[in-house]
Amino acid sequence: MIGTLSKPSGLVYSTVIVLLLIAPVVISLMEHSFYLDLLTRILILTIAVVSLNLIVGYGGMISLGHAAYLGIGAYSVGIPSYYEVFNGYIHLGLAIGGSALFALVTGIICLRTRGLYFILITLAFTQMLYYTFVSIEEYGADDGLVIYQRSEFGGLLDIENANTLYYAVLVVLLLSLYLMHRLIHARYGKVLFGSKHNDERMQSLGYNTYQYKLSCYVISGTLCGIAGFFLGNFTNYISPEMMDWTHSGELIFMMVIGGTGAVLGPVLGTATFLFLEEFLSSITVYWHLIFGLLLIALVMFGKGGLHGLLSRMDRRWEKSQ
């Protein structure tokens, strides 16, 4: 997955992973807990982008509704907590079950459409969910709910501790990256790839591509629901705003910046997006303008995203060997 370590890409990715592993230690020495928050946020959203990358990069299904699953995951923590149920297994179970079910039901309908219609219908379903939660007064309507206590996992895991939460997220992220790596090279991944590029042909070869795409859509939604579970715990707060369509758009940006269809692309894309946002907003109030221009430049000139850039450097490096 990382390839030869001495290649430019191998160097970059292994450095990133080592940095992520030691970050909490370094940050605690520096006593800048803010950076741990930023990194935790990056990791959580990277899981979401990995899940999006599965349906877009491998399945060819461009969804503008992925924030729905972040919301479902987060509400799976928030609503039980509101009733003083703090059991983490229940929270996680709800997040997984809820997002899988939402993905299945909406997927059955969305996948009957293609292209622009698919994009719009995924957006429509997410907006439906958004307005549903806006209208539920009990759970704070558009003000949302404060989560006073994070999910409890018995004595096994105490994610009230910021470092523990960070490492829990990191482990889930690394596992999901490994899963993606296995999946795309296995039979399942080949069928997805084939139907992304020539659905017609795959059907004539005897594949029920609708079912394969639907299962892919459900896997992706479920993984994103897990990211949402962490997001709820991390922010100690839930609100319908998490499902706003602009967040779905941001996830797409992060994916494109990293390199759509590259297993490790989401790591680079999400980190770059959030670091840039953080850095620019700290130097000027007009940061949106600069940020927007940078995004346009990245999309226009960086074919294949940052991962594509690294691949080109790899090829140059190989030639020079």
């Binding site: 899963l179 296995r182 999946l183 090279h185 296995a186 039979r187 399942y188 991944g189 080949k190 069928v191 084939g194 795959m202 070869l205 005897g206 594949y207 394969y212 299962s215």
Partner: peptide, 17 residues
């Protein structure tokens, strides 16, 4: 891909093709 199609379902997520 064609051969794979004749060998039952392709919900196999782990072994590299």
């Amino acid at each position: 891909l064609a051969v794979q199609s004749t060998e039952g379902h392709s919900y196999r997520f782990w072994a590299p093709v």
